[in-house]
Design a protein around this nucleic acid. Sequence first.
DNA 1: TATAAAATTTAGTCTTGCCTAAATTATTTT
DNA 2: AAAATAATTTAGGCAAGACTAAATTTTATA
Lengths: 220, 220
Amino acid sequence: MKPSTSIQDYLKRIYELTENGSPASTNDLARELNIKPASVTGMIQKLASEKPALLEYQKHQGVTLTSAGKKAALEVIRHHRLLETWLVQTLGYSWDEVHEEAERLEHVISEDFERRIAAALGHPLRDPHGELIPTADLKMPLDDSTPLSALRKNQSGKILSIKGADADLLRHLDGLGLTPNTMIEVTDYSPFDHNLSIKVNKKNIVLGLSITSKIFIEES
Amino acid sequence: MKPSTSIQDYLKRIYELTENGSPASTNDLARELNIKPASVTGMIQKLASEKPALLEYQKHQGVTLTSAGKKAALEVIRHHRLLETWLVQTLGYSWDEVHEEAERLEHVISEDFERRIAAALGHPLRDPHGELIPTADLKMPLDDSTPLSALRKNQSGKILSIKGADADLLRHLDGLGLTPNTMIEVTDYSPFDHNLSIKVNKKNIVLGLSITSKIFIEES
DNA sequence: TATAAAATTTAGTCTTGCCTAAATTATTTT
DNA sequence: AAAATAATTTAGGCAAGACTAAATTTTATA
Ligand SMILES: [Mn+2]
Ligand SMILES: [Mn+2]
Ligand SMILES: [Mn+2]
Ligand SMILES: [Mn+2]
């Protein structure tokens, strides 16, 4: 059976929160889902005790996805990212507008719809934010990108993706020309505040850690 | 507040069932919605007693839409028919495949999405089944079509629309060449069984009432 | 017009998914 | 290591929207 919309959103957030390897905490999930922690506890207990469990859960220790849970999460993420790509390409959405629409559509499109847009788009590898799109057989491609925040003076590369869906940040970056596929070069690093000076399109700008940690680079 | 998916489906069905002027009965609604009559009674009582009532309801007399209810119904119908048109045009769905997909998407697209597909399609007047699409300000255009079942020998015209969403019937009609915009001519009428003999694309076929009552014609 | 059949409503229950308040466990601070 | 704070879980509740079984009302039939 296909998981409910709520469950799909839980699984997707858990996937994202556990990408770093550590379990997702009740509170982090509650914050991401805009649901009270007590409710999250209830749901994760339920998901952990389904016939094929979707989560691995130990009281007070947070949760990780089982392989069944990961598969379900990747299904939703594939829908989301293909939809974003589709909306931008065919309806002229800008990259900061698509997220909310995809957030609702992802739960209701059929597998047939998924196949049709994937084919129409030529089976794209990345969405408009540069995020990798899980394959049709639900594997997440390897990500060889580095956060901009890890680069130092004289290192350079191409922007691959912007993580996190905050529309205001996306519009701000768009204004600075910081979009996927743009070449950048680090011209200076400031310790203590971790500011980076970078050159983009001949212009020099300075970015704080809260921005550089969300921009991912393919080094060159 | 936007009505829930369930409520939207109730309103849409009530709109369709009351197009002939008479109220929609509890049982008819239950059949159309695949919901037990007892549940339908509960829902229509609720909808009839909302702050601005969506339904006019009198016990045992069925329901009709108030103007607020009609507006909400037309919103959903506009979404549905624009979506069907868009899916056929941009993703190559055939006219017998689109209905189910639109049935789910209609509840989750934004008004922005609605505007974008309407514009991309050039503000179409009819969907792939020939059904009229409510306008952006939620008026249903006048329908000047006649059911094929009302035509008699030597009358002719163009197929405007096929009512009812049964995919099997649509595929059958497609096989016979009976699609919107096709010209037809009635060559004979058989009383008692109400069969019509018609000429389409040079071929003669005989159709029963259960089919002719679903095909709508612009007489010529 | 009395009875039978069909349609509709009432009453009570269930599931899903959320909430608040209170209790418990884990983590920091002193 | 105790006390304070933070995180998490438990307990109890609520709203939406469906269901079944039983009661009622309407309509059709004899
Ligand atoms: Mn899929
Ligand atoms: Mn979502
Ligand atoms: Mn629907
Ligand atoms: Mn609309």
